[in-house]
């Protein structure tokens, strides 16, 4: 694969099979620097599996992937240095407070303690958890946990964020809060983001481009305008992501 500098992630025919079941089917897509790409699809569509393959945590059955010029299979450790991954339902050590949680992640990334101290303050402020710095995570609300999760992925100074269902289970206000934060990261810090979700409205709000995955296959990808034209023909009306998605979903 030929990639230029602005390409952060590129895959070609990436495939993962579990026995007879194809979790990800010949997936090809490109993620460019500074964009937010939304993976859309129902549960079991293969979104998480794709992210895991891109981090070298799961071995692809076939196909290729490149993350910032690196092969995730052979350079898993280096790839994981570049990617800030927030898993679906990100977990925490309940007995630690926010600062201690971040200290552990910093230590795993080999960040010296003095440097980590400053970064922890900076990112707790950024995600709006400054006043909860010494509160045990066990007492955090779901929204606070997600924001702490974002601070945890930022502390390693990643080139790209992988956010797996970041708004899952959040109440509307907390979800908006988080979406705001993600958009701000892109706009103010030029962060590249790959996120997965099945919340159409939320994805529409924050993504520059989306890819629709159904049963392991990416059936369409592009900007909302492009998808709208592709599926409904030329016209003045721009369709919502929901309408587009449902059309794809019904047509299989």
């Amino acid at each position: 694969m030929v990639t230029d500098d602005s390409v952060v992630v590129q895959t070609k025919d990436l495939t993962k099979q579990y026995g007879n079941q194809v979790a990800v089917n010949h997936l090809s897509f490109t993620l460019r620097e500074g964009e937010i790409f939304g993976f859309l699809g129902p549960n079991g569509a293969g979104k998480t599996t794709t992210l895991l393959m891109l981090m070298g945590l799961t071995r692809p059955s076939s196909g290729e992937a490149v993350v910032c010029g690196l092969d995730p299979v052979r350079r898993a450790k280096d790839v994981k240095r570049i990617i800030g991954y927030m898993p679906e339902n990100v977990g925490f050590y309940p007995e630690l407070d926010a600062v201690q949680s971040l200290e552990y992640i910093a230590a795993l990334n080999g960040i010296p303690e003095s440097e980590a101290r400053n970064k922890i303050d900076e990112f707790l402020e950024l995600v709006g958890l400054k006043d909860e710095a010494y509160k045990k995570v066990a007492n955090f609300s779901r929204g606070m946990k997600q924001r702490l999760g974002i601070a945890e992925v930022l502390i390693k100074d990643p080139k790209v964020l992988f956010l797996d269902e970041p708004t899952l289970g959040l109440d509307p206000e907390a979800a908006l809060n988080l979406i705001d934060l993600i958009v701000r990261l892109k706009e103010e810090h030029n962060m590249t983001v790959l996120l997965s979700s099945h919340h159409l409205h939320q994805v529409q709000r924050m993504s520059d481009r989306v890819g629709i995955m159904i049963n392991g296959t990416m059936v369409a990808q592009g900007t909302l305008d492009q998808l709208s034209k592709e599926k409904f023909g030329l016209g003045d009306k721009t369709y919502s992501l929901e309408e587009i998605y449902l059309k794809y979903f019904r047509e299989g």
Partner: peptide
Amino acid sequence: KERAQGTLIKITSQPIY
């Protein structure tokens, strides 16, 4: 325990072996 509380994937997605 780490698997149940969802911290195992978080740890293994850090740049460590």
